Simulated assay, not measured.
Amino acid sequence: MSLASYIGCNVEIPLSDDDSNDVILIGNCFSDEVHRINVKKNQLTTDYVYEVSTHWGINISEYTNQRVRTESRQKLIRLCEIMDEYLGKGDYFELYTCWIGEEYEEREGELTIQLKNFDIDKISIPERTVVRFEK
């Protein structure tokens, strides 16, 4: 199985170039259209849904190993930098991570974070948690 992360926002975001070496990519990796429809319908409140990845989702919790937590923190910081470019004051984006095929399952938690005002070392974002990043 594959761990996928999705973002939802109310503005259209361009997909990453296929040859990009960025730590986070916006575009399809593990998911297909049905997965994105299910996550939009069951988890997110926005008009646009994208998979974000570099071949593994964002998972920051006590249950992940140190390497995965470190990589996920780097991905999340970069994702917030990217989204900051597209969001206006008062806008938000949502992040949801789950195993492929679990997009319709009940979420395990919700969290709201200020886009530019959080301590990456003090947050926990386990799978099946909707995180709203407000600008």
Rank of each mutant, 00 (worst) to 15 (best):
M1P: 04
M1C: 10
S2C: 15
L3F: 05
I7V: 13
C9S: 11
N10G: 08
V11H: 05
E12A: 13
I13H: 05
P14N: 12
P14E: 14
S16P: 08
D18K: 13
D19Y: 15
N21K: 14
N21G: 15
V23L: 11
V23Y: 07
I24D: 00
N28V: 08
C29N: 12
F30I: 06
S31F: 00
V34D: 15
R36P: 00
R36Q: 13
I37H: 08
N38M: 13
V39P: 00
K40V: 02
Q43Y: 01
L44A: 08
T45R: 14
T45D: 13
T46V: 10
V49E: 01
V49R: 00
E51Y: 03
V52D: 04
S53V: 03
S53I: 01
S53Y: 00
S53N: 10
T54I: 11
H55T: 13
H55I: 07
W56G: 04
W56I: 12
N59Y: 06
S61F: 09
Q66R: 12
R69C: 12
T70D: 13
E71Q: 13
S72D: 06
R73H: 10
K75C: 08
K75M: 15
L76N: 04
I77V: 14
I77F: 03
R78F: 04
L79H: 07
C80D: 09
C80P: 02
E81Q: 15
E81N: 15
I82A: 07
M83V: 02
D84N: 15
E85N: 15
Y86F: 15
Y86R: 07
Y86P: 01
Y86H: 10
L87K: 02
K89W: 10
D91Y: 02
Y92Q: 02
L95P: 00
Y96E: 03
W99Q: 11
G101V: 05
G101S: 10
G101Y: 02
E102Q: 14
E102M: 12
E103M: 09
Y104T: 02
Y104A: 13
E105P: 02
E105N: 11
E110F: 12
T112M: 09
T112E: 15
I113P: 01
Q114I: 03
N117S: 12
N117P: 05
I120F: 07
S124T: 08
I125Q: 03
I125M: 11
E127C: 11
R128Y: 06
R132F: 01
R132T: 15
R132E: 05
E134I: 14
K135L: 15
